[in-house]
Design a protein around this nucleic acid. Structure first.
Lengths: 175, 175
DNA sequence: GGCCAACCGTCCGAAACGGACGGTCCGAAG
DNA sequence: CTTCGGACCGTCCGTTTCGGACGGTTGGCC
């Protein structure tokens, strides 16, 4: 049995949600959904399905004509593996990767003026992201996708938390 | 000139903050500071300083006796590089990596009972993390490290946001 | 002197990363 | 009818990251 990484489950999950998909489909779908909270280089959306197919978790079908795209669909055992993972307890705490936070942490080394600039940039960035999220919420206000929109609420909470923080930092560093 | 990654700046910044350090020192220091918001495999704390030394950004000195540990300190040009980075605008948005969020996103595939379990686990995890952070705040309530404690406030904000979300989700999925 | 726990460092295979590259299809403009 | 550009689609490859296994050292305590 192959070792399944989180990467694998993202692919599995995506195919399960969307139905049969080509890597390119997945790429776009990831881009405006799961990609917001789990970074995913596109090249893996071509290689990972191959591994999963070899493991019997995905099934492949190739177009007869034209571009001969390959479409993947989830197999019984793929669905089973996915569900097993979903049911398992989750031990890992989330990981952040925030360059701004890093720079803030090392701020002692430098002029505090830059902290203010950093804070202002971050305020702008998070406001922008919040606007995007709210726009998505509006556009997908349909019962069909309601369940997968829950995640957006978490995203929004996080964004607002960050925004609050950087805003207050910007205020505190006012001259 | 070598290409500097964020990894490089973490090492540079750490040495700048702590003064001369061995990789092992860095490992422990990272473990209870920057490691909370930027994951860092220890092996890199041995290899990266080597690269940085080759680039002239760190300086090395080796113990004469006993274990012959190597201690790195930051050079003038290292400090300059670090400050340059700190002053640069930050374009990237933070990245999250949250398995729980992924599972939530794919929840449609599965029984909603598992969503509740997930939420409860997450509530516990975030409460624990918050307690850790608050403990750190209490222990390091000294002017000497005040500036680098700011980051904790952001961490706490994020944790509380997540906690709020998972708590409300747990309530909503109550039977 | 022996033993254990913390200390310290290396190595290596497997993923992940990301960006350059190259081809294909289709509609619109000339 | 031809050309052209933009979206579409996929591969490749060198570099970094990852993480965990492994192994040696040191000092204090029994």
């Amino acid at each position: 049995m192959v070792r399944l990484s989180t990467t694998s489950y993202v692919v599995l999950g995506m195919v399960a949600l969307r139905g049969p998909s080509t890597p390119y489909d997945l790429k776009r779908a990831v881009g405006h959904s799961v990609g917001y909270f789990w970074h995913f280089p596109h090249a893996q959306l071509y290689s990972e399905p191959k591994r999963l197919t070899a493991a019997g978790l995905l099934e492949v079908s190739t177009e007869e004509t034209g571009r001969r795209r390959t479409t993947y669909s989830i197999s019984e055992s793929g669905l089973a593996a996915l569900r097993k993972w979903l049911a398992e307890p989750t031990h890992e705490h989330f990981q952040m990767r925030d360059v701004a936070e890093l720079k803030l942490f090392f701020n002692e080394v430098d002029d505090s003026r830059h902290v203010r600039e950093l804070a202002l940039e971050q305020v702008a960035a998070h406001e922008k992201r919040i606007a995007e999220y709210e726009d998505m919420q509006r556009r997908f206000d349909q019962p069909a996708v309601a369940r997968r929109m829950i995640t957006l609420r978490l995203g929004l909470e996080m964004e607002h938390a960050a925004l609050r923080f950087w805003r207050s930092l910007a205020e505190e560093t006012e001259d």
